[in-house]
Computed example of a mutant assay.
Amino acid sequence: MAGVCTPVSVVTTLDGKRPHGTTVSAFASLSMEPPMVLIALDRESNLLRVLRRSGRFGLNVLGVQQTACANAFARKGDDKFTGIDWIEDSGVPRIADVPGWLACEVEDLVSGGDHVVAFGRVRAARTAPGAPLTYHQRGFGTHSAL
Rank of each mutant, 00 (worst) to 15 (best):
M1F: 13
A2R: 14
A2Q: 12
T6W: 01
T6D: 01
T6V: 12
V8E: 00
V8M: 01
V8T: 03
V8P: 01
V11H: 05
T13Q: 13
D15E: 15
G16N: 04
R18Y: 01
R18Q: 13
P19F: 06
H20A: 08
G21M: 06
G21Y: 08
T23S: 12
T23E: 12
V24Q: 12
V24T: 11
F27E: 11
F27M: 15
F27H: 13
A28Q: 14
S29W: 13
M32G: 14
P34I: 09
P35T: 06
L38I: 15
L38Q: 12
A40W: 03
A40L: 10
L41A: 12
E44R: 15
S45H: 08
S45Q: 05
N46F: 09
N46Q: 13
L47E: 08
R49M: 02
L51W: 07
R52K: 14
R52M: 06
R53N: 12
G55T: 07
R56I: 07
F57E: 12
L59Q: 10
N60Y: 05
N60R: 05
V61C: 10
L62I: 02
L62P: 04
Q65S: 03
Q65T: 00
Q65L: 00
T67Q: 12
T67H: 00
T67W: 00
A68R: 14
C69D: 04
N71S: 02
A72T: 08
F73G: 04
R75N: 00
R75K: 14
K76W: 04
K80W: 00
F81W: 02
G83V: 00
G83R: 05
D85T: 00
E88Q: 11
E88K: 06
D89P: 00
V92L: 03
P93H: 02
P93L: 04
I95G: 10
I95K: 06
A96G: 04
D97K: 07
P99I: 05
G100K: 09
A103M: 09
E105G: 07
E107C: 05
L109F: 09
V110T: 11
G113D: 11
G113N: 12
G113F: 10
V116N: 07
A118C: 09
V122F: 10
A124S: 15
A124P: 08
A125E: 09
T127E: 08
A128N: 00
P132F: 02
Y135C: 05
H136Y: 15
Q137W: 01
R138T: 13
R138Y: 04
G141P: 03
